[in-house]
Design a protein around this nucleic acid. Structure first.
Lengths: 202, 202
DNA sequence: TCTTGATTTGACCATCTGGTCAAACTCACG
DNA sequence: CGTGAGTTTGACCAGATGGTCAAATCAAGA
C-alpha cells in the first residue's frame, strides 16, 4: 500500500485508471459479477499491482461509490429556493435526464447496488440522501403552499423524477429493443417536459 | 435428469420448490451473485439433488424468467381497445403498481437482468415484448387520433408507466430510506393516478 | 552515480463454486 | 412382498477468484 504522503504522479494516474476501469466493470456486471482481474486488465495493471493501490475489491467499490455520490446528487443540490419554481424543477429534470444519457455507467452502478438492497451504501442513503431530499422537499412544499405549483406528495414527486429519468440509463437495452433505431433521449426529453408541465401547473 | 414422462408428485413438488427458491435468491443477488448451493438449501434439497431436476444454474434461471415473462406482461395484454381509453390506461397502471407491491421479487429479477444488459433475455425483449408493445401502442395512437386522450409519444408513455411503477419495487430500499415508516404504495397510488389523469386529459 | 523508497510482478494459496458420478435409498405397482 | 424406475447423497473434481508475499525493477533526490 502506498504511504499516505502526497500522492505521486504515478499514484494519481493509476488510482484514476483503476476507478475508471472499476466503473466500467462494476456498472456492467454488478459487484459480485465483477472480478479483480477484469478491473486490473482494463486498467492496464496486473492484479497484484492493482491491489497495491486498493486493499481489496470491496475498497475499490466503496471508493467509487462514495466518490460518485456527490456528482450524482449535485443536480438536486442545485435546486434553488429563490428561483422560479416551475423553471427550477424543469431544469432539475433536464439535468437529471442529461445525466442519464451522459453518465449511464454511473446510473447503472447505483442501480445495481440499489436493486440488491444497497448492502454497501445503505448508510449513505439514510443520511446524506435523506437529508438532502428533506431539505429540498421543504422547498417544494413551500412552493405548493404559495400556489406556485400544484399540490402533490413531494417525496413521490421526487421519486417520479428519478424513476422517469434513470429508467433510460438503467433499462437502456429494453428501451432500445422497443424503439429500434430511434434515439431514446430525443423523444424522452419533450415527453418528460410535457409531463411535468401538465403535472405541476397549479 | 427425470424422464420426460408425466411428472410425478415428487417432481412437481421439487421443481416448484426450486423455482420458488431461485426466485428469492436470483432476485436478491442477481445471476452471478446467486449460488446453486444457496438455492438448493433454500429449496430444502442438496446441491446434487437440485441438479437432478435442472441441468445447470443457467437452466434454472432461464426456466424462471421465461415462466414469469407471461405473468409480467399480462396486464399490458389486458389493455382493451374497446374499453374507455382513460379507464383502460388507468386500470393498467393500477395493476402494474399492484404488481410492484405484490411481486417485488419478480420485478427485481427482471431489473437485475436488464440493468446488466439482459444477456439472457435479449431475444424475448426484441420479439415477445416488442410485438406486444407495438400492438398496444397502436391502440394508444388510435385513441390519440380520436381525441380521447392527449397526444403523446406512445412508446415513452409506456416507458413512463413502467418506470414509475417498477421504481417502487426495484428501488424499494431507497424509497423506504426516504419515506421512513410511511407506506410507499399508500402515497404512490394517488400520486401516479393524479399524474396520468393530468397527463392524459385531452 | 548511488541510494532509498516507490512500484511491479511471478508464483502461490485458500476458498468458493458449478458440476459429476457411482452408490445408496425410496416408492409405486404388479 | 419384490422389483425396477425414480430419487437422493457423499465424495470428488476442475476452474475461477480474492488475496498474499518476497523478490525484482524503477525513479528521483542527494
Amino acid at each position: 500500500m502506498p504511504k499516505d504522503r502526497a500522492p505521486t504522479r504515478i499514484q494519481k494516474k493509476n488510482r484514476a485508471a483503476i476507478l475508471e476501469a472499476a466503473l466500467n466493470v462494476f456498472s456492467a456486471h454488478g459487484f459480485r459479477g465483477a472480478t479483480v482481474d477484469q478491473i486490473a486488465t482494463e486498467a492496464g495493471l496486473s492484479k497484484p499491482n492493482l491491489l497495491y493501490y486498493f486493499p481489496s475489491k470491496e475498497a475499490i467499490h466503496t471508493a467509487l461509490l462514495s466518490g460518485l455520490l456527490e456528482i450524482w446528487l449535485a443536480p438536486l443540490h442545485d435546486l434553488d429556493a429563490d428561483g422560479d419554481p416551475m423553471e427550477e424543477i424543469l431544469a432539475y429534470i433536464r439535468r437529471k435526464l442529461q445525466m442519464s444519457r451522459d453518465l449511464q455507467r454511473e446510473s447503472r452502478l447505483f442501480a445495481n447496488e440499489l436493486v440488491q438492497g444497497a448492502p454497501r451504501i445503505h448508510e449513505s442513503l439514510s443520511n446524506d440522501l435523506k437529508t438532502l431530499v428533506d431539505e429540498k422537499t421543504e422547498i417544494l412544499t413551500r412552493w405548493m403552499d404559495q400556489g406556485k405549483i400544484a399540490r402533490l406528495h413531494p417525496y413521490h414527486l421526487i421519486f417520479s423524477i428519478w424513476a422517469l429519468t434513470q429508467h433510460y440509463a438503467d433499462f437502456d437495452v429494453q428501451v432500445r429493443a422497443i424503439l429500434g433505431d430511434e434515439d431514446p433521449f430525443e423523444g424522452a426529453e419533450p415527453f418528460i417536459d410535457t409531463l411535468y408541465r401538465k403535472l405541476l401547473a397549479p
